[in-house]
């Protein structure tokens, strides 16, 4: 057997229940489920991006889960630019975007074959709080909106309302809403002047802050307007013609502030991704899109 090498013979009679072993086992018991969950996450359809697109896609996924047993995970971290980033890095299978899809976006992730599939259209509304609406403001011209955005117009009385400070909540500059908004006012994102405004993120945050603030104005998907707490202003052209963001004005193209609702995918659609896209571009998807206040593709 083994030689003693002259070490004192220390009794270790209870080695099996040494506390260290138990600690080790306990640690492993905590760590193993984490490893296991990381390993199984591959099988889930992951979706991320725009809060505007999310309301439709989340409903569609829920239906697909009930009918086809699809497992999925959806979140709106980072809005449209978060969706583009996530699909570009391969963190998700489907990105959601309401910001449009340009060659510039494609060039950011050259290693991926990114493509955008439009499922519908959304009207972008200039929304105000109840006190502004009751104060008599019903519409703005693009000129007036530029003035407010650049801080030259600061009071509602300058655009036909009561004497109340204009509190403009700007959508975070990465949001699809913001991009569509400045493209309408200035032609492109980079032409927008440097301004400082309080910023808002998701659609629900925008809505809640506008509801809770006197004199509030912000940009928001028209689908979130209720006409009770949040009101959509019309857009007035040079001739004094006012166009409201209604479904009909969206469908006939008379409302100027519109944007596509896109699903971003990498490569040709396959498997679960294809299942989702076929559902959304089909008749039941169109019904869902209309239900949420957007315009489905087929109605063009």
């Amino acid at each position: 057997m083994c030689a003693n090498f002259g070490f004192p013979n220390v009794e270790e009679s209870h080695s099996l229940i040494r506390p260290s072993w138990w600690c080790f086992a306990l640690l492993m018991a905590f760590l193993l489920p984490i490893f296991a969950s990381v390993a199984t996450a591959v099988d889930v359809l992951r979706v991320q991006g725009s809060t505007t697109v999310n309301s439709v896609v989340a409903d569609a996924l829920e239906i697909l889960q009930a009918e086809k047993g699809l497992s999925y995970r959806i979140d709106t971290q980072g809005g449209s630019s978060g969706g583009l980033y996530a699909i570009g890095r391969g963190a998700v299978e489907v990105g959601m975007s309401s910001a449009g899809f340009s060659e510039q976006d494609r060039a950011r992730f050259p290693e991926r074959d990114l493509r955008a599939l439009t499922i519908g259209y959304d009207a972008l509304a200039l929304i105000v709080s109840a006190d502004v609406w009751q104060g008599g403001v019903r519409s703005l011209t693009a000129q007036e909106m530029r003035g407010i955005y650049e801080g030259r117009i600061r009071n509602w009385s300058e655009v036909g309302g009561s004497d109340q400070r204009i509190v403009f909540f700007n959508k975070e500059p990465g949001r699809g809403t913001w991009k569509s908004f400045v493209r309408w006012l200035y032609g492109s994102e980079n032409a927008a002047p440097p301004v400082n405004h309080p910023e808002v993120g998701s659609n629900s945050e925008t809505r809640n802050k506008v509801i809770g603030t006197r004199g509030a104005l912000s940009q928001l998907s028209a689908a979130w307007v209720d006409g009770e707490q949040v009101f959509a202003l019309g857009i007035r052209d040079a001739a004094g013609e006012i166009v409201f963001p209604s479904q009909t004005n969206l469908a006939d193209g008379s409302y100027p502030l519109t944007r596509p609702l896109n699903l971003l995918i990498s490569g040709p659609p396959e498997g679960k991704v294809q299942l989702l896209i076929e559902f959304l571009q089909g008749p039941r998807g169109a019904e869902l899109i209309r239900k949420h206040g957007y315009l489905p593709l087929s109605a063009e």
């Binding site: 992730f109 500059p173 990465g174 993120g201």
Partner: peptide
């Protein structure tokens, strides 16, 4: 914590 981190990438 905002979405600017996503724009900054690249």
């Amino acid at each position: 914590g905002g979405s600017e981190l996503y724009i900054a990438l690249g």
